[in-house]
Design a protein around this nucleic acid. Structure first.
Lengths: 170, 170
DNA sequence: CACTTTATGTCAGCCTTGTTGACTTTCCAA
DNA sequence: TTGGAAAGTCAACAAGGCTGACATAAAGTG
C-alpha cells in the first residue's frame, strides 16, 4: 500500500484507507463498467423495437407513477421538454402510452401505459431486474445495503429527493 | 416463479426480502439517479473545454494505463474505432494526448497524456473523486465494500475482466 | 374582463457520440 | 510474397441531448 497515486498522505487511522485516491478511482471505474452492464440487457431489447434508452426511462417512470404529468416526468428525467416530447410522441403514436387531459387542471396531460406499454415495460424491467437479482443474491443483503447507501450519497440532493419520494410513495 | 411477478408474496426466508421486485426496482432507480450525479461534476468542467464524456473516458483510461494502444482502449470503452478516433483526434490536435508509433509493432499507436492532458485529467478526476469521497465517507467502509461488491456483480464478465485487470495492474 | 403565468406541444437547427460501410496505408508473419 | 491485422480516413446516418422561437389552451390574478 504505502503511496499509490500522487496525492497520498499518511492517514490517521487505518480505517480511512478506503478513502485513498486509488480506492476512489476503483469505485469510479466500477461505476463506469457496472453502468454498462446495467443498461446492456434493456438496450438489446429496445433495439428490437427501434427504441432507445430515452424511451425506456420514460416507460419506467410512467409505470412507476401512473398518471404522472409531463412536467413531473421532465423534472425526474432532467431533460428538456423538446427532448422528452419527441420520445413521448413516438410512444403515444405507437400505442404504448396514453395521454389524458387532466380533470382538475386541463392544461396537464396525465400519462399512462397501455396494455402494450405494460408489456414492453415488463419485458425491459424483467431483463434488468434479472441481472440485479443475480448481483444482489451473489453479493448478499449486507452488501446490497451498502450499495444502496453509497449510491444515495452520490446523488445530487434534488435527485435524492426524487428517489426518496418514490421510496415512500406507494 | 410464485412471487415477484407484480407484487409482494411471502418469501421463504426473511433474509430474502432484499430480492423482492420492489427492492430491485429501488436499486435500479438508485443506479439511474446516482449515475447522473456521478457524471455531473466532470460534465460541468468538460463543457468549459467544449469536450464531452467521451473525451473524459479516453483521458481517464490513458491516464490509468499510459502507453495503452488504440485497440486496447477500444476494448475497454466498447465503442467503434471511428467513434474513438474522432475523440482522440481532437485530443491530439489540442495537445492533450500524444500518439507514439510502437517500437515493436509500428502499426500500433501508444497513447500518453501530455502536460496539458495531465492537467485536464487532474481537474476532472479531482471533481469526480470529491463527490465519491464524500459519499464514501458518509456511508462508511462497510457500505463501500458492499457497494463495490454489488457493482462488480452487475458488470458483464468481460467488463469485470477489464476492471480486475486494472485492479492488479500497477 | 384583461392580463399574466403555466403546461404543453411543435418547428427548426445545432451538437455530441454512437453506428455501418468502404477504402487506404503500414507492416508483421507465415 | 502475400495475407491479414492495426490503424486511420471519409461519408453517411441516427439517437438523443440542446437552444430558441412560437402557438395554444387553461388557469390564476388584479
Amino acid at each position: 500500500m504505502s503511496d499509490r497515486g500522487t496525492g497520498q498522505t499518511p492517514v490517521s487511522g487505518e480505517t480511512l484507507l478506503f478513502l485513498t485516491d486509488d480506492q476512489l478511482r476503483r469505485g469510479i471505474e466500477a461505476m463506469f463498467f457496472a453502468y454498462r452492464g446495467f443498461t446492456a440487457d434493456p438496450d438489446r431489447i429496445l433495439q428490437e423495437y427501434s427504441y432507445g434508452r430515452a424511451h425506456h426511462r420514460a416507460v419506467h417512470f410512467i409505470k412507476r407513477s401512473p398518471g404522472t404529468t409531463v412536467n413531473n416526468l421532465l423534472n425526474i428525467l432532467g431533460v428538456t421538454k423538446q427532448s422528452l416530447n419527441r420520445v413521448l410522441r413516438a410512444l403515444i403514436e405507437d400505442g404504448l402510452v396514453e395521454s389524458r387531459v387532466g380533470k382538475q387542471d386541463r392544461r396537464e396531460r396525465h400519462l399512462y401505459l397501455t396494455e402494450a406499454g405494460q408489456e414492453l415495460e415488463k419485458e425491459l424491467s424483467e431483463a434488468q431486474r434479472g441481472r440485479m437479482r443475480a448481483a444482489y443474491r451473489d453479493a448478499g443483503p449486507e452488501a446490497v445495503a451498502g450499495f444502496r447507501q453509497v449510491l444515495e450519497q452520490i446523488m445530487d440532493p434534488e435527485m435524492r429527493r426524487h428517489f426518496q419520494t418514490f421510496k415512500e410513495g406507494s
